[in-house]
């Protein structure tokens, strides 16, 4: 799951080195926090949050495969 978010974010930003994904696990759920460089925020969020929502949709599949629930915040 974490590598999925990392792969998508690093592929879309101009500065992959600033991409950081942190995972906070609690019981059967994981909350991911994605941070990117300030100038790259738009690339991982997208117009109307479209990129973020598409990423979340793919994260849901990855989470289901691992039998957990996962959420993604971009901060």
């Amino acid at each position: 799951m974490q590598d999925l978010i990392e792969y998508i974010a690093k592929s879309l930003v101009d500065d992959p080195e600033q991409v950081v994904v942190r995972a906070h696990e609690r019981d059967k759920s994981v909350r991911f926090e994605l941070t990117v460089g300030e100038d790259d925020m738009g690339r991982v969020i997208g117009r109307g949050g479209r990129v973020a929502n598409a990423t979340r949709a793919l994260l849901r599949v990855a989470a289901a495969r691992s039998g957990v629930r996962a959420t993604l915040d971009i901060i």
């Binding site: 998508i8 592929s11 879309l12 479209r50 990129v51 929502n53 598409a54 990423t55 949709a57 793919l58 849901r60 599949v61």
Partner: peptide, 18 residues
């Protein structure tokens, strides 16, 4: 087909950028 649409969207963005 919403997940398929999301996959296609993300793939388009990544390939387009590369």
């Amino acid at each position: 087909g919403e997940t398929l649409t999301a996959l296609q969207y993300v793939a388009r963005l990544i390939v387009g950028k590369e």
